[in-house]
Design a protein around this nucleic acid. Structure first.
Lengths: 144, 144
DNA sequence: CAAGATTGACCCCTCAATCTTC
DNA sequence: GAAGATTGAGGGGTCAATCTTG
């Protein structure tokens, strides 16, 4: 993948992300934590009002495709990290709600995750690097 | 994920990559192409001397874990894109070699992939952005 | 019929166990 | 016994078909 300078940017982006995220996920797993996707769901719910979101909304906010949401949440329900509740005002919808157990698990993950992020990512960059990176990546992707 | 400025950098990196790569993969799929992982393997082989690599080497150069290599290559062999050959000097090893059909498929993918990269990534950044991005991301990850 | 979610079938990945060759 | 690769079982993603409610 080295046809031109512009392509090299993409190649570096692709490769650095995959290498780094794989390495970090491995560390989390070795510490007995769930995958990053689980963290993403738990954290997304915790940020929401009353720790609740409709499946539809949750699917949009999380990185996963909407296909996976039902089954992923099912697993979290089995583990007691999330509750589900049919929406009363529109019975087509379903709410997912973070349980107190779910909050504990997220906090426990964060304790290690934060250290990993700092060691493998943040501490390798200067403040200006961070600013530049955010500015540049925001150009190729904007929040919904 | 907004505990501090340093964490925000990671969060932006994570989210931008997942959103963008998902969108680009979708476009490739809609055009009837295989997944990016397949491109990665074909291109890695094409760059190698005589379009051949040992499985071990291929697994290291590609983003995937080594676990997936046997089965992924099996699929590519079934599709006639790759050949396999036992290594004569060390019969524990196996060589994977890109076929002419595999070259054609990679070129066909690249025709569309290059356009997608330019539209969704390269053209949104300045030359300096590209340089900065490569410089920054190289700090968090160095090639083997 | 549309929206939201679930299900079934299929595909692929993961990991540990295994096989062959060194 | 170690290195390189394969296999089987189980987990999980993907997509189309389906079900329910609006």
């Amino acid at each position: 993948m080295s046809y031109s300078k512009n392509i090299d940017g993409w190649a570096t982006y692709l490769k650095s992300y995959n290498r780094l995220s794989q390495k970090m996920e491995e560390k989390l797993k070795d510490l007995g934590h769930p995958q990053l996707e689980v963290y993403d769901v738990l954290w997304t719910l915790e940020q929401a009002s009353e720790c609740s979101l409709r499946f539809k909304e949750l699917g949009k906010k999380v990185f996963l495709t909407r296909y996976g949401i039902t089954r992923l949440v099912d697993r979290l329900v089995e583990q007691g990290l999330v509750e589900r509740k049919v929406c009363e005002s529109d019975k087509r919808g379903v709410w997912a709600r973070l349980t107190s157990q779910g909050k504990k698990v997220r906090q426990s993950m964060w304790k290690d995750y934060a250290i990993i992020i700092k060691n493998d990512f943040s501490n390798k960059l200067t403040q200006k690097d961070h600013q530049d990176l955010i500015r540049i990546l925001s150009k190729v992707w904007q929040e919904d």
